[in-house]
Design a protein around this nucleic acid. Sequence first.
DNA 1: CGCATTTCCTGGAGGC
DNA 2: TGCCTCCAGGAAATGC
Length: 276
Amino acid sequence: MPELPEAETIARELDRQVVGCVISSVRVLRRDVVHGDPRPIGRVVTGRHIRRVYRRAKRVIVAFDPPIEIVFHLGMSGRLSVEPSRVLAAKHTHLRLALDDDEVREIRFCDPRRFGGVWVLAGGTRQVGRKLGPLGPEPLQLTSKDFANILDRNRQVKALLLDQGAIAGIGNIYCDEALFRAGVHPLTSAADLSLRQRGVLLHSIKTVLRAAIKHRGSTISDYRQVDGVAGSFQHSNRVYGREGTACVECSAEIIRLVAAGRSTFVCAVCQPQQSM
DNA sequence: CGCATTTCCTGGAGGC
DNA sequence: TGCCTCCAGGAAATGC
């Protein structure tokens, strides 16, 4: 499930492969996957060249010249790939952007579960569209002071970390991994965390995200890099998906519970419940 | 306000 | 082998 490190990996690789390319044609295979600008996406981007590809939160953004942006939200099964146009497109490919280059490649957006989507944002107009809600700050750029303020709410810390409007880019996997490394129980009220604990938690979040980017993301089921290769950070997970196994720190059994409606993995010894 | 539940969707896993 | 049910989850909507 693509979170910040997966989106970052895809954005970097896409940028490397397609920056400067011109869109020669567009094929929309599922109309309801494309949102934003009401004009047909083909009319909007054909003939424009790709200025850069970057990431914001869990989104991969292709920026064009003249200025127009296509925002890809990968949901949980979304994939972006660059393939030769002659290669048969995978099932559930919803959008194909042909590149006017020698190899005749195209950018493909494939999303079987369709929790993701594509937003076309016309130049200047920052109307993000109803479905793309407000985003909190990037965790990797957050100061401990700002983070401490974000946590100053009577809310389960896990629910808060997953709230994209509070902090952008953290999903279920890295949330659990960061909480474990910080020794914080996911059901703790954020407001009950000491300043020191908040500092440790931010540090853990940054450490986990940076390490995951280095490993090019976690491939649990669907996620793949632009070239189809899996990421490898799933092998570094200490709690996520490890129910019933021994904690790497203390050998206690990792347990699964539900927090914020999601599967949540904790070591009850390393992450004690705080009394409130 | 906060939190749980439901909804969307497909494919993979497990039961029988 | 095949059919059924359940489960995964990002984010928004709804209900308590």
